[in-house]
Write a protein that binds this DNA or RNA. Structure first.
Length: 294
DNA sequence: CAAGTGCCTTTATC
DNA sequence: AGATAAAGGCACT
């Protein structure tokens, strides 16, 4: 199957390589992914987006193709710097990930590099996820809440989680017990959903903001990681007192109070699509000097 | 090539 | 309350 779209307004490679999602694999020019229980493949050639084993409605929803990107770019285009970043990665969109997979992925992602995160998630899936065969090849679904809730700390640690194993186990149990319903959080507002996520083990402000942005449809969310902190110090320092910038540049990661200040700046300055600005700035800052890292 | 540094931070403990 | 330390291990330099 194939849908036509404006390649200026969607770029599959940027979307899958920018670090928002960890489980897509490129083989022979096709991207293979597993979403919930389903394996599908997709590729983009100019204005055509091809896909197999999934329907067009799903693809449009998953890649956020229903959102008016040109309108978003106008809204977040507050200055030359973000405009250049958005222009550089034209067509990068924020995916609507499965909230459960997103939650566990970002708990695992704390204080890890992207290749390491991919490895953890891959190992978790092959150990605890259901097998799915597609085109004669083995894929694995992301483990269900029950599968991780019943896993042992040791086996989780074997997947490279380290001290995160306990957080994953505790959070998986809460989700499995339905103490928190992730789907319901899609309908809650940003503040409310954020509070609920923060009750989960291993979820701090940054992780919560990532889950809100990438899986709960809160495009106003503005996760602040080391790269965004650097981008703000480099390009938006004049929006803060000098002492504040000096203070955060000395530290390795911001305190909750400092985080909230940076986060609030992002949301107020860029507006309701601050999350899009965040992704462009993040990816631009990360690729600024380096040639490697997928 | 080896060793050091950094990583899409959170939690526990002072 | 607010700062500080501890917590894998992989990948890049």
């Amino acid at each position: 199957m194939k849908i036509r779209l404006n390649s200026q307004l969607f770029n599959l490679d940027f979307t899958l390589c920018c670090g928002q999602t960890f489980r897509w694999e490129n083989r022979d020019g096709w991207w293979y992914g597993v979403v919930k229980e389903r394996v599908f493949k997709t590729r983009q050639i100019d204005d055509g987006l091809e896909f197999e084993n999934v329907d067009a409605a799903f693809v449009k929803n998953y890649f956020g193709l229903d959102e008016d990107l040109s309108k978003i770019l106008v809204e977040i285009g507050k200055d030359e710097h973000v405009k250049v970043a958005a222009e550089t990665f034209k067509g990068l969109r924020i995916i609507r990930q499965d909230p459960w997979e997103c939650l566990i992925s970002y708990i695992c992602a704390t204080y890890k590099s992207i290749p390491a995160i991919k490895q953890m998630i891959f190992k978790l899936s092959s150990q605890f996820g259901g097998k799915a065969v597609f085109e004669g090849q083995d894929f694995h679904a992301f483990p269900t809440p029950a599968a991780l809730a019943n896993a042992s700390i040791e086996k989780l640690k074997n997947c490279g989680l380290g001290y995160r194993a306990r957080y994953v186990l505790e959070t998986a149990r809460k989700i499995d017990d339905e103490a928190v319903n992730l789907e319901k959080l899609k309908r809650a507002n940003y503040e409310e959903a954020r509070c609920r996520l923060l009750e989960l083990s291993g979820v701090g402000l940054k992780v919560a903001d990532c889950i809100l942005l990438f899986s709960l449809d809160k495009k106003e969310s503005f996760p602040v990681d080391v790269w965004i902190k650097r981008a703000i110090m480099r390009h938006y320092a004049d929006h803060f007192p000098k002492e504040f910038i000096e203070k955060i540049s000395a530290e390795r990661s911001p305190t909750n109070q400092e985080y909230e200040r940076l986060n609030l700046f992002g949301r107020q300055y860029f507006g309701r699509y601050a999350g899009y600005a965040q992704e462009y700035l993040y990816h631009y800052e990360r690729t600024r000097n380096s040639t490697s890292q997928s």
